[in-house]
């Protein structure tokens, strides 16, 4: 499948602080990729590189085959950008901002924009500066729909939104993206929102990619395991598991496995256990399971 975004060997430092080295990933056409990671793992850095507002120390990032730092106007027309905080020209009103952007985009279709504004009872002459954060997010969403871009880059779209507006944003966007076959790269701090939205997730850890996997596959194969034990110490070394934790006689860890394989793994390692349980995870649980709580 054609790759819309291709990042090859991205390496970036702020001063001497390494953000990541040799980061490679692609976003194929028609897929929705969620970029997940704790604070400071390089999500914003990656978004800035993709948007052409940061030159990586090494490596390159291609969008529609062009280097992200030097995109032609034709390629920029194909990319809808939602900046963190739903930044817009807040001194304009609804009519003015629609007219302003329509001049730049040949595929501009104002119908979905005004439909969304009517639905939210936002008057055409209402100034963006006087709107709530939720309303501003819908203006930004309406503009993205009207632009009819092929690639949507959404940086922390849920920031500052209450659950209702988050749900509205995702439902509206989901329907549009699925029906039009758009490609999306999205980041959000609220991972439970992403579960209903993204096809693939790319989880960043400090300095590297922890995993890039379809969400369905992650939720099908990644599990939490808990058991009771009577030992003072458990040696987890050499086990292919994530973030083991022991609280008194209760132990838990995460793994891409099932209880049968884990049972034999624990026996082979000489770990005494009783009451082994396996729990299916939500995306947020899986994220914590992979990256740890702190």
């Amino acid at each position: 499948m054609q790759a819309i975004i291709e990042c090859q060997n991205l390496t970036h430092y702020y001063g001497t602080r390494c953000i990541y080295t040799n980061l490679n990933f692609t976003v194929p056409k028609g897929r929705i990729l969620g970029l997940l990671g704790k604070n400071g793992t390089g999500k914003t850095t990656t978004i800035n590189i993709l948007n052409g507002f940061l030159q990586p120390k090494e490596g390159n990032c291609l969008i529609f085959g062009e280097p992200s730092g030097k995109l032609s106007p034709e390629v920029k027309q194909k990319i809808a950008l939602l900046l963190e905080g739903h930044v817009q020209y807040s001194f304009m009103n609804i009519n003015q901002i629609e007219k302003f952007y329509s001049a730049f985009y040949p595929k501009w279709n104002k119908t979905p924009f005004y439909e969304l504004m009517r639905k939210l009872k936002i008057a055409p002459n209402q100034k963006i500066a006087n709107m709530s954060c939720g309303q501003r997010s819908q203006v930004a969403l309406g503009l993205i729909l009207a632009q009819d871009a092929d690639l949507l880059v959404l940086d922390d779209f849920s920031m500052g939104l209450d659950p209702g507006y988050r749900r509205l944003f995702i439902d509206y966007l989901n329907e549009y993206i699925r029906s039009e076959g758009k490609t999306v790269l999205v980041t959000s701090h609220i991972i439970q929102d992403m579960e209903r939205f993204i096809d693939d997730c790319l989880i960043l850890d400090y300095g590297k990619i922890l995993i890039q996997i379809p969400v369905d596959e992650l939720l099908k194969t990644f599990r939490k395991f808990q058991f009771t034990h009577n030992e003072n110490h458990i040696d987890w070394n050499g086990l292919d598991i994530y973030n083991p934790e022991i609280t008194r006689n209760h132990a838990e860890f995460h793994a891409f496995s099932n209880s049968i394989d884990i049972k034999s793994l624990l026996l082979q390692s000489g770990i005494q256990f009783t009451n082994l349980t396996e729990t299916q995870l939500t995306l947020e649980d899986a994220f914590i399971g992979l990256t740890g709580k702190y």
Partner: peptide, 18 residues
């Protein structure tokens, strides 16, 4: 100053022009 404080410079530079 409004462009910088409200982070709109990125918005402006993303407009489909050189």
């Amino acid at each position: 100053i409004p462009e910088i404080i409200q982070n709109r410079l990125k918005l402006m530079l993303h407009l489909p022009l050189t």
